[in-house]
């Protein structure tokens, strides 16, 4: 087995009385693409935010390149964050800045690159996600949802990160645009040789971008395996999820009339 790029050991987090993460154990090997599947409200987003340091877990350990990020001071932590890129669910573009400056943001603010040079890189990255240089001059509000996602992807890969997180990369897109985004993710990750961690409930997307798949349910990883093993996992939870059945061991909190 190759070395672990990211490792979560027994990570727990609760908000008030609600337990969101209940002892998560997860390993993302270097250079691989792990997709975590699971329903809404199962703690997927919280897990990613714990790794990024946006949310602090109550207990457990998180290792990036073998170092426990929860024990680091702010400046060490910032250095680790430079290895990351992230594509947010709603793209989360800065609407006060034009598109190219969004893409170049990490280069200009985080790495102190000259604006001119950063703009050239931004335009190059926009081309990589199939957007013309003129789009760079527009503002995010002027773009369609699919274009915003692509700009978000360009921003995530702008600084050539070692690790990329994808939060529901295809949610809210039509099936064709969703597949375009999936292709772009696969291509750009291959180019960079990056390690990726994605969360999604879109099985078509998971099948396309994953090397490995893990399923999260009620704050725990209940199954993990390779992409090929998903279809005959022998796990009733996974079966119910990938076939999208209402009946099964996973009960939605819906009151029956």
């Amino acid at each position: 087995m190759s070395e672990a790029k990211i490792e979560l050991r027994n990570v727990s987090k609760r908000f008030g009385k609600k337990v969101v993460l209940d002892g998560i154990n997860l390993t993302v090997p270097k250079g691989e693409s792990l997709v975590v599947i699971g329903g809404s409200g199962t703690g997927k987003s919280v897990m990613i935010k714990c790794v990024l340091g946006i949310i602090r877990p109550d207990s457990g350990q998180i290792f990036v390149d073998g170092k426990n990020v929860l024990k680091m001071d702010a400046s060490e932590r910032e250095k680790v964050l430079r290895k990351f890129g992230m594509l947010f669910q709603g793209a989360a573009l800065f609407d006060s800045l034009p598109v190219w400056e969004n893409v170049a943001f990490g280069l200009i603010q985080g790495r102190k690159m000259k604006r001119k040079q950063a703009k050239d890189i931004a335009i190059e990255k926009l081309a990589k996600v199939g957007l013309a240089a003129e789009v760079g001059e527009l503002y995010p509000a002027e773009l369609s949802g699919g274009m915003q996602k692509r700009v978000g992807l360009a921003r995530a890969i702008a600084a050539d990160p070692e690790i990329i997180f994808f939060d529901e990369p295809t949610t809210g897109l039509d099936p064709i645009m969703a597949d375009v985004i999936n292709d772009l993710i696969v291509d750009s990750v291959k180019d960079l040789g990056a390690t990726t961690l994605s969360i999604t409930h879109d099985m078509a997307s998971a099948r396309k971008i994953a090397d490995k798949v893990a399923m999260i349910h009620k704050g725990k990883i209940i199954w993990a395996g390779s992409r090929a093993e998903v279809d005959d996992s022998g796990n009733a939870y996974v079966d119910q999820f990938i076939h999208g059945r209402a009946d099964g061991p996973i009960q939605m909190e819906v009151l029956k009339p």
Partner: peptide, 21 residues
């Protein structure tokens, strides 16, 4: 609005401290 659309989290992932910025 930046908070609820995750733009503040995005700042963190682009190695920019939101307090500072």
């Amino acid at each position: 609005t930046m908070r609820v659309t995750e733009q503040i989290d995005a700042l963190t992932t682009l190695s920019t401290n939101p307090h500072k910025y």
